[in-house]
Every structure is written in C-alpha cells, then in structure tokens.
Design a binder for these strands. Sequence first.
DNA 1: AAAAATGCGTGGTAATTACCACGAAAATTA
DNA 2: TAATTTTCGTGGTAATTACCACGCATTTTT
Lengths: 218, 218
Amino acid sequence: MKNYLSILSKVKLFNNIEESEILSLMTCLEARINNYEKGEFIFTVGDKVDTVGIILRGSAHIIRENIEGDRTIISTLGVGDYFAEAICCAGVEESPVSVQVSSDSTILLLNFSHILHTCHNSCMFHTKLIENMLYVIANKNIALQNRMEIISQKSLRLKVINYLQTLAMKQGNNITIPFNREEFADFLCVDRSSLSHELSRMKEDGLIDYHKSNFRLL
Amino acid sequence: MKNYLSILSKVKLFNNIEESEILSLMTCLEARINNYEKGEFIFTVGDKVDTVGIILRGSAHIIRENIEGDRTIISTLGVGDYFAEAICCAGVEESPVSVQVSSDSTILLLNFSHILHTCHNSCMFHTKLIENMLYVIANKNIALQNRMEIISQKSLRLKVINYLQTLAMKQGNNITIPFNREEFADFLCVDRSSLSHELSRMKEDGLIDYHKSNFRLL
DNA sequence: AAAAATGCGTGGTAATTACCACGAAAATTA
DNA sequence: TAATTTTCGTGGTAATTACCACGCATTTTT
C-alpha cells in the first residue's frame, strides 16, 4: 500500500487528508489491492457494486452493453482515476456498466458503502472523506450538465459554437480545446469528418478561425 | 416554517430525519424563507451561490444564457423540488445557470456551503444530511449518464431503441414511457415531428409497436 | 354542448449529417 | 533520415433530420 501513497495523495478523494491518515483510512475502507490481467473484468453489468475502485497501475475501460450484447466504451481511465463512485453512493442495485482493464493493472478497492451505511465511529477522516466524495461527485454533475447542454443542441454548428463559447468564458478569445479532432468529435457525439466539414464551413462563413486545437470566435 | 414541514418531510434531502430534527437543522443551515413574484430571479448566471433552494410554493425555471444573451429553459421545478445543490457542493465560483420563478413563489434557502466548510459541531443530523445529499447527487449523476448514453447515439432510431431497451430491462416487454410525444422528443433532443416520423417508420419496419405512450419491442 | 386548445401523425422539402474513400501534412518510430 | 503511423481536411453521395404546414382526434374550457 505504501508504495502507492504518492498516487493516492494526488487523488481528489483524499484531498486535505495526510498520507499517514490515508493509511489509517484504508482499514475503515477495508482496502483490497487486486491485480488483473489485460482484458479481465473488475465487475460486469448487473453486479451489485459497493466498492470504489482506484487505478494504481495500468488502465481500464468503462463499458456499456445493450440487450443484444453490443459493447461500447464510455470512457477510458488511467492511473489515479477512479470509478464506480456514483454507483456506490447512489446505492444502485445493478450496475449499468462493466469495467474492464485494458492492460495489466493493479486496482485498489475501497468499501465505500460500508463507510456510508454502517461504520459510524466517524473519525475526522470519515467526515472529510465523505465531504470530498460529495465535492467530487457534485463537480462531475456540473460537468455532465454542461456537456449535456452542448450535446443537446440540434445542429453540429450550434454544438461547436456552444462549446467554444463556454471555453471562451474561461480562456478569453484565444481558445485551446483539450482535444484532437477525433476526441472533439467524440465529445460532441458526431462523426469526425462531419465535424471537419462543418468547421471549415464555419471558417468560410467567417464565424470562427482555427488552426489545429486553437480556435478563435469572430 | 412549521407550515411547510409536511413538504420538507417528503424531500429526499431530509430522508430519515425526523420532523423535529428538521426544525433544529434549519438553524444550522441559516434557513431563510423568501417570497418572489412571477418573473423574479432567485439568482443569475455568474452569481456565487452557496445556498440550496427548495420550492415551498409556486414553480421555477432553470435557465441558461449564452454570450449573446439568448435564454433556454433547462428544466422546470415544482413544489418540493430543489435546485443549486450541485453548484453549492461543487463549490463553483460562478453559477452557469439562472433560476427564475415562473409563478408567485415561496422559496426556502439553506446555507449548505456553511455546513460543509465551516460548521463542524457535526450533530447526527449534519452527517445524515450530507449523506443524503451525496445520495441525491450521486443518483442524479447516474441518471445524467444514462441519458447521455442515449442522446449520444448517432441516429434517432438508435436513440429510441436504446431508450426503450433500458426501460424494457425494468418494465419487461410492455413499456410505458413517462412522456408525451413532445416531452419524449425533448428528452431525446430531437424535433417532435422528426420523432413521430421515425416512430412510424420503425413500426412499418416491424421493429416496434406502439400506441400513445405504450410501446413494445418486437 | 359548443368552442378552444392540445397532442400527434403526416406530407413535402431543404438542410444537415453520416459514411466512405483518399491524400497531404505532421508526428512517431525504426 | 527513411519508413510508418497518425491526424486531419476534403469531395461526393446517401441517409437522416429539421422545419413548416396542415388536419384529425382528443381533451379541456367555457
């Protein structure tokens, strides 16, 4: 466990919690460290999930599957990322997603439902941890709502403008998007070449200017 | 305050908290009750928000506005609904939305950031309240992700199928959607008549059968 | 019961987008 | 530095969707 402290201390979930305190928290959280080989599933759709997972080594995909069994990757996780925190805190009975490691990985599993629903010796760390969790999930919430707002626009052009405008509020007129084209298209839920088409049309129409990932609203 | 206890006791945020306890909580939360006339804003984009609002009487809209000042209604709230809880818990400095009452309203405002960041006499209620908040936001999170998954499908047909399939998992083969056509279209972020068109095409193609809000996957 | 409002399907058309294929430029690797 | 891979724009076409207009059926109001 100690080997991974440097990772854990950077995780927002443990914000304002000393490294020594993190170690003692691990007991309350019934921490387990599991190794998985590339392709293994940590849990699958329908499982009851009551642990939060943190990636200590390797990487993983969050995956959805429909009735016919088609799988789509919802997101990709790396070292320091965590998963299942919302599932866990929402107390959902059946996970709507699976998590599969995409390379040999080491995963820290923390029994969060325990700390929420039973263990009430409430040391200072517990309180802090729950508050951190609230902070993390609330922020995810805001991010999800912002993205939803953008995706729900009815045309590609509006999606792009909407997104650039929200960035412009923070970055000013010279905007750098944190995506390459393909990632940008994925974020907007559109086809990459459709996005490229639309971007050049928007440039032609004098709405925007751009070069690679740098944009300017005109 | 007492007049509204019957409303508050049904609010998920106060789950497992006795009515008498709710009253004493109000002190910690620096509860204020404000009246607004139809059309008034409770707060606007850019405001620093550190209170959670609960509607005791009337109704409100959550509104976004872009740089040009165009406004769109994101959601509609009624008695017992609350707002700004994620903004508050996420500690965002500038609210991305405005809240405007759509009829004469009475709003309960609770200083949640205070209970999170300063007030640490941590009575049992505090802990319970924070846990409830975590539960509420986590569930909202899951709902947002589920909806995102559906909206991000690249064709209307896939959106419909995806949505019906998730409902089918819970309701079995005879599905009742909680929307009329217009609401359904809004939920999927598509045009109402486009949805109607696609639905009849899907019926024609033998994919689904439906009548009003009752659907069946074939 | 009549009148008004709402909900919903449908036709038709223009606009938008997905999809495929390709090549040039840039970045990465050997 | 050459070879390979990745990134991205573009043309073209088919499919999808938005948009407008209208009418019928149902519900609500008066």
